[in-house]
Design a binder for these strands. Sequence first.
DNA 1: TAAATGTTGTTACGACAAAAACAACAATGG
DNA 2: CCATTGTTGTTTTTGTCGTAACAACATTTA
Lengths: 260, 260
Amino acid sequence: MSEPREIPVHIIESLKSLGLTKYEALVYIGLLRVAGATATEIHEISGVPRASVYPVLDRLMQKSLVSVSHTSPKRFNATPPDDGIDSLMHRIEEDAAQAREALTAIYREKAEEHRADQEFIWSIYGQENIQGRLTDLIRNAGKEIRMVANWNLLSETILPLLRQARGAIAVEVVTDFWEGEVPEGVAVHVHRHCMKHEQCENHPPMENAGVFIVDGAKVLVWMGSSGEETSALYSESPGFVQFFSRYWTNIRDWVKLSNQ
Amino acid sequence: MSEPREIPVHIIESLKSLGLTKYEALVYIGLLRVAGATATEIHEISGVPRASVYPVLDRLMQKSLVSVSHTSPKRFNATPPDDGIDSLMHRIEEDAAQAREALTAIYREKAEEHRADQEFIWSIYGQENIQGRLTDLIRNAGKEIRMVANWNLLSETILPLLRQARGAIAVEVVTDFWEGEVPEGVAVHVHRHCMKHEQCENHPPMENAGVFIVDGAKVLVWMGSSGEETSALYSESPGFVQFFSRYWTNIRDWVKLSNQ
DNA sequence: TAAATGTTGTTACGACAAAAACAACAATGG
DNA sequence: CCATTGTTGTTTTTGTCGTAACAACATTTA
């Protein structure tokens, strides 16, 4: 019988975020390795105390991750990983749907004080989070979007968004490089410090950076502070918007000029 | 300022299964109701101790559920529920994918002792769990499926499965009622205790019940013990299979006879 | 201006519940 | 009779919940 072999912790963690406990994860994994095992065998394989194995198996059965044979001694079997995880995800997605509904209801009936979005400057942390917010912003744009952004960010995140979600929205872009086709309805100003993109690496690898002005009313400033966690500012404050509108116009005019 | 209004517990529970703690849920909900609130306001709205609000907000920011304005005092804002839940689900789905991969690897390299599936009779509990297993079974059928099942179960669960997943598989069904078209490649034997389905209700509402024999090698017996939780047996044991094969043949012959 | 007051943000610590880990014991079966 | 199974407690640990106290800062009042 194989010893309680070392299980990578990150698997346990993944399973935990699917709603399992450490023991449940260990037992389930153990049962995947040895089908039709007895409680004692499971104990040996997984390293989980024998006495704890029984309640854990009960919970796993409720979650449909194991089935049991009513022999003596009882033997247990794991449902295949794909089925098992599907089952877990199904539960979670139900909860997500419920939460979505309930929270949207709450969200709609909130006091309509717009001070929140209008007067303040909000910070957002983390690549994914910023990207998500930006996605939202572009999708809900009404008339026009002006932006300064480096090519990396532009090509990987922004362009795909523009391609699908834009319906008669004017887009004006200032960037440091361009390659490939320019989508219809998009005006591009390139300030080439160099001819090939790879050569631009004297500028430190500012991973993602850009300013996005939507409908002259909303601004998102993405600061790719290389090294630390990236962060972004978002605001609908008129002063903030005006400041970056001017900043953007300056940049664009300067680039146009230097390209002549 | 609105008091810490009563939040339905099930919302909290839903959010918990998405990886939030009670406090995180309360604060997030509070912020949905009052956008751009200060820590103290959040404390008042949500009922979460003021001192606990700060670390909770930190965690929520990491999870991209709130953003912060660097004014004094700081003000916080919730990301809209749809975006927020998307963000949470995204993380979970990543974990699910990871787990899937890792577990499938483990599952494949398991000792190929088939005693597990061959010699024992496995119990499965819960409607959903059984349905899932049955789905799996039908999808992976090789040649033929024989079944006895009541019409409810048949029409709601089985037929949709058959329609999509069957490629040249012989299906023979014994049931108590039939309505609608018979799919191609399916033989049906009906034993009508009554002409209209609604009239059959002298038989107690045996919610779901049936025997499913796949390729003459696998059997699933679904026992809809009305009242308690439904349960099912699954086995590849030759004896078990043979028993139900004969049982099924008997039933079919009897029905054929009594229909003449 | 200086003291008094109040609020913000931080830190520390106790209470509590769930999970993890251990120990003991009755039931079962060869 | 012995070994193993299955069950029942108990202790330890962990993470969250909840309270209290305090420094930093701004506002008010004398």
